[in-house]
Every structure is written in C-alpha cells, then in structure tokens.
Amino acid sequence: MLKDHAKIIHAIAASEEIIGRKKLQKMVYIAKKMTFPFQERFQFHFYGPYSEELTLRVEELCNMGFLDEWKEKKGGYYQYRYTLTDNGKEFLSLNPVSMPNIQEIMSDMNNQNARFLELVSTILYFDNLPKEEVIEKVFTLKSKQRYTEEEIDQAYQYIANLKEKAVKTDC
C-alpha cells in the first residue's frame, strides 16, 4: 500500500513544487500514460481525467506529514501548492522508488500550464480512438476551453516528445 504513496511522493519530489490540484492530477495521469507505474484509476471528469484515489492518497500524505499543502486565495478561487516535507524526504529515502527519468518528465510537465495539461491528458484519455475522433471529442467536451487546432497539434507534438523521453527511461 505505501509503495503507491511513495510513487506519488517521488513524483512531487521530482517536480520540487506543484501548484494546483488539477495540475497534479494531470501530471500523474500523463506520467501514467507514459508507462510510469502509478496505480491510481482515472475517470473522465469536468477537467479531463481525474482520480479520486489520487486525491485521497495526497490527502493521506498531507495528514501523515510527508507533503505540505498550502492553500492560497487567487482572485475568486483557492490554489493549492504541494511540496515534500523533511519527513517525506526521509520516508522516500527508506522506501526508494525506481522511476528512471521521471524528474525530467515531471519537470517538463510542471513548466506547462494546467490548461495545456488538461488538453494533453484529454487527448491521452481517448488515445484508443482515431485522431479525428479525438479532436471532435476535444471540441465537444472541452468547448468552454476553446482549444484551437494549433493547440491540439502542439499537444500531439508534446505527447510525442514525452513518449520519446519515456522510451529513454526503458533503456
């Protein structure tokens, strides 16, 4: 059970700090789709793939003192920041996780905005469909986001780049 917690701690440690619950969800989902061994199940939700299990694990990690969660008011909403605590670092040193190259991939994703990661994760959620159907789903399910065809092309290119980095980890 704690192995799955350690994987999440490792991913957050690799990112140094993740700002936003939605962003954390998307980053873990995308990493999972890049074959990193996350066990959380995801379902399609308002903002794309979402995992109740991930939400609960992060909450448990905060309660155990392994993660710090800061809540700050940003305009009309609250934004959450996640970082590893010293206890979390110690836990990770006692429960090492082998996820080669996750730091490069998590850092890369952490440099993207949550809106773009929402698009990338949505495309990956429907990756069993032909590209034309995926694009149609994005325009239908994500109409409020007003993604452009150029952004969708950028997301597909980004996915290809991440997959290339992930393949390097398997060597």
Results as ranks from 00 to 15, higher is better:
101 N>D: 09
99 M>L: 07
75 G>A: 08
110 N>M: 06
68 D>F: 09
71 K>V: 11
41 R>N: 14
55 T>K: 13
8 I>S: 05
70 W>Q: 11
32 K>L: 09
22 K>G: 15
55 T>A: 10
48 G>N: 06
23 K>M: 05
8 I>K: 00
32 K>H: 08
93 S>Y: 01
14 A>S: 15
59 E>N: 13
79 Q>N: 03
94 L>T: 01
107 S>R: 13
102 I>A: 03
46 F>Q: 13
105 I>Q: 07
73 K>P: 05
86 D>W: 03
70 W>S: 10
89 K>P: 00
73 K>D: 05
30 I>H: 10
60 E>P: 00
68 D>H: 13
28 V>S: 02
71 K>G: 02
78 Y>F: 15
58 V>W: 02
41 R>W: 01
58 V>Q: 07
49 P>I: 09
6 A>K: 02
68 D>I: 12
82 Y>C: 06
7 K>I: 03
64 M>G: 01
39 Q>E: 14
31 A>N: 01
93 S>G: 01
79 Q>L: 14
75 G>Y: 02
62 C>T: 13
101 N>Q: 04
84 L>R: 02
57 R>T: 11
48 G>L: 10
62 C>E: 15
99 M>N: 04
88 G>L: 09
104 E>H: 07
52 E>L: 12
5 H>N: 10
53 E>S: 11
100 P>A: 10
105 I>Y: 05
70 W>L: 13
82 Y>W: 01
17 E>Y: 03
106 M>T: 00
58 V>D: 06
69 E>I: 13
77 Y>F: 13
23 K>C: 05
77 Y>Q: 12
41 R>D: 14
1 M>N: 10
112 Q>S: 14
69 E>V: 12
46 F>V: 09
65 G>P: 05
82 Y>I: 03
71 K>T: 12
8 I>W: 05
65 G>C: 05
49 P>D: 11
101 N>I: 03
9 I>P: 03
39 Q>N: 12
35 T>G: 02
46 F>M: 12
49 P>R: 04
86 D>H: 07
48 G>I: 05
64 M>D: 04
58 V>I: 14
111 N>F: 03
69 E>N: 09
94 L>V: 00
68 D>A: 07
35 T>N: 14
68 D>S: 10
65 G>T: 08
9 I>C: 15
55 T>Y: 14
13 A>K: 15
88 G>W: 02
104 E>S: 12
100 P>F: 04
105 I>F: 11
80 Y>W: 10
82 Y>A: 03
87 N>F: 09
110 N>V: 02
78 Y>L: 08
93 S>N: 10
26 K>P: 04
4 D>S: 06
14 A>C: 14
7 K>L: 07
81 R>T: 06
97 V>Y: 01
23 K>T: 07
16 E>R: 14
47 Y>C: 01
43 Q>L: 10
26 K>M: 05
77 Y>K: 11
30 I>W: 11
104 E>T: 13
3 K>C: 01
93 S>I: 00
63 N>I: 00
7 K>S: 08
5 H>E: 14
108 D>E: 12
4 D>Q: 11
32 K>V: 06
49 P>M: 08
79 Q>C: 05
11 A>V: 00
101 N>A: 04
67 L>Q: 08
22 K>I: 12
41 R>Q: 13
95 N>K: 00
28 V>G: 03
57 R>W: 04
